[in-house]
Design a protein around this nucleic acid. Structure first.
Lengths: 133, 133
DNA sequence: TCTCTTATCAGTAATCATTATTAATATATA
DNA sequence: TATATATTAATAATGATTACTGATAAGAGA
């Protein structure tokens, strides 16, 4: 602990997160980064992902399957989980921040925000030509 | 596996889930059921919680802290997570199912539903007299 | 009621994702 | 360049959950 120094491994991890919308797990990030850093350790990936999240440079997403996913896009946006192929994807839609107000009405605490996952079938799985991932 | 037979352990687990709104973890359920079944095993708790969920008789809630929580109330309702004390509680509010329509507009798949967690400070933590749990 | 089949159990070992430890290496500053 | 220390690779440890195993008990038929 102290200052945060530069490391090429961390930069590579961040660059990868910024380059994809696949919301990879730590394991997926590990597999990808290993192409450029064959000796990188899974622990290093976890440590840097946690650091990036705590610095607000990445988001941690949990869909309840026991594997955390990470997102380099920190701008507020919503996500969609396909029940068939398991893909987690971005979902562009009109803002729905008003639901915080609805939640606050009649609530005796303080609602600050929300985390939301839409689910159903993605385009490919709806058409029936989806390859499970 | 064939028919599902009756078991008092499973009935006790389900009764407990129906009697509380505390959204207990498997470990919490285990501690509670042990009062009546001192010899029950944690594995039995997990197995029956999973069975109840797969039968649609209970809900599994994941807030991303690594511990699944369970809810005997299967009617659609929303949840609130207190960032201070960690409590997960029910949040009564006007229905917001219209957000599924908003999400579907412009989406090329099929949005069937959503899972949402509001977060902030609960009543007690807002007042500052909350005992962390 | 008595058997018989097998689902469920208690106990425990195994698994999986994640975190902690440690000695070696890399970064930054003087 | 020398020094201090953050970061790394490798690996051990942790904690939640699942799988396995022999014993027990539900419940259907004799």
């Amino acid at each position: 602990m102290g200052v945060t120094r530069y490391s090429r491994q961390r930069e590579a991890i961040r660059d990868y997160l910024l380059s994809t919308t696949s919301h990879p797990t730590a394991e997926s990030v590990y597999k990808e980064i290993r192409k450029d850093f064959p000796k990188i350790s899974l622990g290093t990936v976890y440590r840097n992902l946690n650091l990036l999240v705590s610095q607000g440079k990445a988001l941690r997403l949990s869909i309840g399957d026991g594997n955390d996913r990470f997102d380099g896009n920190i701008h507020p946006h919503n996500h969609f989980f396909c029940k068939n192929c398991g893909r987690l994807m971005d979902l562009e839609m009109d803002p729905i921040d008003h639901i915080n107000l609805i939640a606050n009405a009649g609530f005796d605490g303080e609602v600050q925000g929300h985390s939301i996952y839409f689910y159903g079938f993605c385009k490919d799985c709806k058409k029936g030509d989806c390859k499970k991932i």
